[in-house]
Design a protein around this nucleic acid. Structure first.
Lengths: 244, 244
DNA sequence: ATGAGCGTTGCGTATTCTGCAATCCCAATC
DNA sequence: GATTGGGATTGCAGAATACGCAACGCTCAT
């Protein structure tokens, strides 16, 4: 729609991965470096990008300022924050908050396990719908028409031996999720990590997000994770109750 | 330089202040709403902007995704973080970290006072050079030519009765700052708040940032703040030492 | 039902962006 | 100190791109 802006956003995303030189950026975008230079200059003027002494470009402070604000604005996140912290402290496990954004499920917040076992999720990045607890929760809550459309078009990428790889099995799983009010992920996304997830609803009952707990099986096996279910559901309910 | 990009960045900044409707944005920019719509669409596609059900626009999650990654990159910040936390805990006062960026001094990190007295600084926002401790520290460390150029072009805005309002007095102050290795701000920026600041240097001795302590005088008078000086300098030295 | 207020779309125009090529700047090398 | 090379920068002319207009649609409220 807007070409130059689109390119500029690509530049920002690229800079998000690390500093770049002018030529590097030009090569990545496949455009002339003059073009990149001019985009960088405009962004530099507004401090979205900065340039160090060696002419290498990085993200600028304006971006940080905005990002902080964006977080605050994210209502679900704001309401959920204290409850997530509590859940994180009580269980000691990794807690995720996710929400729909533009037809994708995006991780909106993450609190690491106190045992600091590394997880490959990242705030702001889309979650797979077919093999994560939050994905299943939010997918299950979609109106039937859209759910089926998504089921049909999903890319059933295989992450582990347990990953669900076809629409029929996933449909059953979603049915189960909806009936019992929570979703599981038995090492379907990352081997050795089990998750359970629950929906967050607003006052009208519409699902606006999902919370999940992720536990490596060196710490707890799946049955032990299920013992955390009451805590998870209590948190989800508390957030939903606050959300008015 | 790039008109459409420039407008898009203005939109982002505007959204940083709160959610907006299409027309509002068009009015603020003084352009046709079609134009705004197209820019928003491109940004939406990359999740820099999101749109709620009522067609109101907000900042999107891509922003905090970028910021999270980039913050880690900010080496000074990364190296300084644990030391700042320690300083914050030991003194209980507000701690700031600032660095040059595009010819301005920008607050890069901030740890609030445990007494949570509100301060009008904000991460990502420029600091005044003539009336803040970090500003003076970094200005004093500039090469003479640039320092004089800045002294000549500064906008000596008056914030409090103590604000330094001319180049000559500021030059003396910078001289003093350089000699003793730290800067003061005796209620020059915010009435009733005194600050002390110290420089951070890399292995070659080049000043790469500044740390400061800010204390409202209801808690400590200026002489009492000076008693925190050893802590501040120790922190600055520790950060400088780590920075290799 | 009707209208008002926004958001959205198609289209022609001209502004704006682009890529090229020449130039400049800095740094390293001889 | 001159020379060479890599990268950044600038001027320019052509063309794609973004712009504004005006008409259409949608939703909500009266």
């Amino acid at each position: 729609m807007s070409q130059s802006l689109g390119r500029a956003l690509q530049i920002l995303k690229s800079l998000g991965e690390g500093e770049r030189s002018l030529d590097q950026l030009a090569a990545e975008l496949g455009v002339h470096k003059t073009t990149v230079l001019r985009l960088l200059r405009t962004m530099e003027a507004e401090r979205f990008v900065r340039r160090d002494s060696a002419h290498r470009y990085r993200l600028g402070s304006q971006l940080f300022a905005l990002a902080d604000v964006a977080r605050e604005q994210h209502v679900v996140r704001q309401v959920a924050a204290p409850h997530l912290r509590e859940l994180n402290q009580k269980t000691g496990q990794t807690v995720h908050l996710a929400a729909w954004e533009n037809g994708e499920v995006i991780y909106v917040d993450k609190l690491d396990s106190v045992r600091s076992v590394r997880m490959y999720s990242q705030v702001g990045v889309p979650a797979a719908l077919h093999c994560t607890a939050v994905g299943k929760v939010l997918l299950a809550a979609q109106p039937k028409r859209q759910r089926e459309a998504l089921l049909a078009t999903l890319d059933y990428k295989v992450y582990t031996p347990n990953t669900i790889t076809d629409a029929d099995r996933l449909r059953d799983e979603l049915q189960l999720t909806k009936e019992r009010g929570w979703a599981q992920d038995k090492a379907e996304h990352e081997s050795f990590i089990n998750c359970i997830g629950a929906p967050l609803s607003d006052s009208t009952g519409r699902v606006v997000g999902a919370v999940s707990l992720s536990v490596p099986d060196v710490l707890l096996n799946y049955d032990q994770v299920l013992e955390l279910l009451p805590e998870l559901l209590a948190t989800a309910n508390a957030i939903s109750a606050d959300y008015n």
